[in-house]
């Protein structure tokens, strides 16, 4: 009989790990709490750095998991270990016995209301990067009404002790520039500003995107964190920031402000994680064994991690980790 591998989470990491394990002749079972596979990436319109449609990637991944056991609208409600196997009880009252567990539970989006000074949920024309992406996908958002001046705020909920997130969320810089170009495509007459502290263009083609943003899309990058947002009598947004390269504070009226929300750990799995004996790291994400050679391993034998549950990660990072976790699981079972 094929050995069962329980994969918690049906996003990019879970799907890719399942695909690889299936090819290795094992029997992965994906348990996904929502009604569809795909996770956050299925909600995205286009991917940085080359504006590739996210749908293409998601469809390919969905195609690959055809024939693999998937439980949708299902959560793991209890799990316990018996020597070298795990017994999981699912919310549909099913019991699964598995030889290994992969936590691929991903991330949650930072709740922008927590940075009250940015006025999300208070002023009409403040939105999140996720909502803007939804606008690009659907073409609908009543807040976007031919804006003439648009601002992007980087590091919302990241690199900020006030919200207890001191880490960098890694993908927001590149996403901000991607979205700045895209909104300029929709509204070529608009002036677009991004307010950054550092622009972390860490991957291949990302610097090219930055150059394109400046040169072809005429997006103005201002180094300085927006410190407060208010609304004027016409319902426009008045923002304050320091232009730290110029050394002077500046004030500006905007029609639309987009908050680049960080990734936070998906806490909906905390109870199961605790039962499995996997702790958290100092950023609040899951603790892996070590960041170089043990990135997919945890303190517990047979319990593995992949994707953004251990730290903010881009899609290529996540797919790479999903593939490597499959190898780790395979080796663990063959030992």
């Amino acid at each position: 009989m094929k050995e069962n591998i329980l994969i918690i989470g049906g996003g990019a990491a879970g799907m890719e790990a399942a695909t690889q394990l299936h090819k290795m002749g094992l029997n992965p079972i994906i348990v996904e709490k929502s009604e569809a596979l795909g996770g956050h990436i299925a909600q995205w319109d286009r991917l940085f750095p080359a504006f590739h449609p996210a749908k293409d990637v998601v469809e390919k991944m969905l195609d690959q998991v055809k024939g693999i056991d998937v439980r949708l609208n299902t959560e793991v409600v209890d799990i316990h270990r018996d020597n070298n196997s795990f017994h999981a009880i699912l919310s549909n009252n099913e019991t699964i016995d598995a030889k290994a567990v992969i936590l691929a539970t991903g991330f949650d989006i930072f709740k922008a209301e927590r940075k009250q000074e940015y006025g999300y949920g208070i002023y009409n024309n403040v939105m999140t990067s996720v909502e803007l992406e939804k606008y690009f996908r659907t073409g609908k958002d009543e807040r976007i009404n031919h804006p003439k001046k648009i601002g992007f705020v980087h590091c919302v909920g990241a690199r900020d002790v006030k919200v207890c997130n001191t880490y960098c969320s890694k993908v927001c810089c590149t996403t901000a520039l991607k979205q700045a170009c895209e909104i300029k495509e929709v509204f070529p007459d608009a002036e677009v500003y991004t307010f950054y502290m550092d622009l972390r263009m860490f991957g291949p083609g990302y610097e090219d995107l930055y150059l394109k943003t400046q040169k072809d899309f005429d997006v103005k990058c201002v180094r300085g964190r927006v410190c407060e947002v208010s609304e004027d009598m016409d319902g426009k947004l008045v923002i304050k920031a320091e232009d730290t390269l110029f050394g002077k504070p500046l004030k500006m009226t905007l029609d639309l402000l987009v908050l680049m929300c960080s990734m936070e750990k998906n806490k909906s799995i905390d109870a199961i994680q605790q039962k499995l004996g996997v702790g958290n790291n100092s950023d609040g994400f899951m603790q892996n064994k070590d960041m170089y050679l043990g990135m997919n391993d945890t303190a517990q034998d047979g319990v593995f991690v992949a994707g953004a549950c251990t730290a903010p990660k881009s899609l290529p990072d996540t797919i790479g980790e999903a593939r490597s976790v499959a190898t780790q699981v395979y080796n663990y079972l063959k030992r």
Partner: peptide, 10 residues
Amino acid sequence: LSPSSHVKMD
């Protein structure tokens, strides 16, 4: 009165 040091981008 000191003039404002803010750059008024508008």
